[in-house]
């Protein structure tokens, strides 16, 4: 069994999911309790644009990484412990 660098990629995907859910809560509050105004609508749109832009850029950046790089190889460790 091996642990590869991909674990950090999944960690980042988990962070994106949390970020998305938290952002939805924020937008819900602004839509439900905020006044109908240009400021409110603009802030929501700016946030969505910045978030979407950042996420696309970050995923593009991470595409260049070799996620198959092995960090820990348990099979090698186990073989060594039996003196093989």
């Amino acid at each position: 069994m091996v642990i590869t660098l991909a674990i950090f990629y999944y960690l980042y995907l988990g962070a994106i999911l949390l970020f998305f859910i938290w952002g939805l809560f924020n937008i819900y509050h602004l839509l439900r309790f905020g006044f109908l105004s240009w400021v409110n609508i603009s802030i929501i749109l700016v946030y969505i644009l910045i978030s979407a832009g950042f996420l696309l850029w970050s995923l593009n950046l991470l595409n260049n990484v070799n996620w198959n790089t092995v960090l820990i190889d348990f099979s090698v460790s186990a073989n060594n412990s039996f003196g093989l």
Binding site: F19, F54, L61, V65, N66, T69
Partner: peptide
């Protein structure tokens, strides 16, 4: 490259957290 990748992921998670915090 491994250190760079981990540092990049940590940085990106930090930026996501700060964006959520500020909003």
């Amino acid at each position: 490259p491994t250190n760079e990748a981990i540092f990049t992921v940590a940085l990106l998670i930090y930026y996501l957290a700060m964006l959520a915090f500020i909003f």
